[in-house]
Amino acid sequence: MNRRRGHSWALRCMVPLLWAMASLWAARIDPHAYTGGRERDETERIRRNSSALAAMLGEFRTSISDIMFMKTERYLHGGVAYRPHHSASAPTAEDMADEVEEHQSELGIPDDHAHKHSGVPTVVPPPNRDFRGWIGDLHRAVRPWRDPSRAHIHTDGRDLLPWFRVMTRADPRYVRGYVAGAFWLAQEDREQAIAFVSEGLEHNPDAFELYVSRGIIRLREARMAEADRGELDPDIRDRWMQARNDFRRGAELALAQRPDDVDEEGFGSGGWGHYHENDALTACRMDLLITHRFEGPVAMSKRRTLYKQTFPELADSPPND
């Protein structure tokens, strides 16, 4: 009897204790501190998402933001669900002459992308690989589905914007969402796109990709304004300088974060991947180009000396030096 009473008292004491501990613990929760559920390296993320477990779990992969990002990929393909494939055909430096275009091509879908992309397996397999027989046939008829051997459908990226807005609200640390969202938003409204990336930078001050992204948008804005007005007035010069500052800050952060063991393909430890390497190189090159134009070859040369320690290929950049 006494023993039971003792247990009862122990329980009564534990409940408020646990309650107090839970309250204290809850007060320490910062939802924005979450960084798990995805890899910084795009290739690693795609490799993991292609695993049997990820395929089995289908939609419920890694995190809500990743799920929304997948949704944007489906929207781009007219609703057709393909297995993750963007790492396999990410454009390399040789594919693109203009490095700004190269940067954008990783975020969006350039015109020639459609022709390159075929043969990527669909989530719902073709009839010869589907054991379900007539149920599989009905599934393919009801769902947006296209034979994997045919070129992909590509739709307007405008309709993706709400998903980028929601995914970055859900997870403000989702840098990829800010970068890709800004790319599509810039087609509609550059000011909004700049504001969107700036919001991303508030949450991710060390994300050099965001500086590069904002630099590209500002650069385009400056180029277009200069072409429209036909002269370089102080306002336009200020825009060029803002773009330069973004590239410079991006380059500084990238060089600070870049590991020493990056291989020829741009992969290194700590999740450093081909995309990071391209962004870092883009930031350095664009900084050199703009510095050369507005501050002259001497100022540019100083910056180049700094950058070419990491990127020897910048020794000849800009080529008309």
Binding site: G78, G79, P144
Partner: peptide
């Protein structure tokens, strides 16, 4: 899942 045509309704300009 066979009775969910929402994917095609969503992208009705294509399907």
């Amino acid at each position: 899942v066979l009775f969910d045509l929402s994917g095609k309704v969503l992208h009705s300009e294509i399907w």
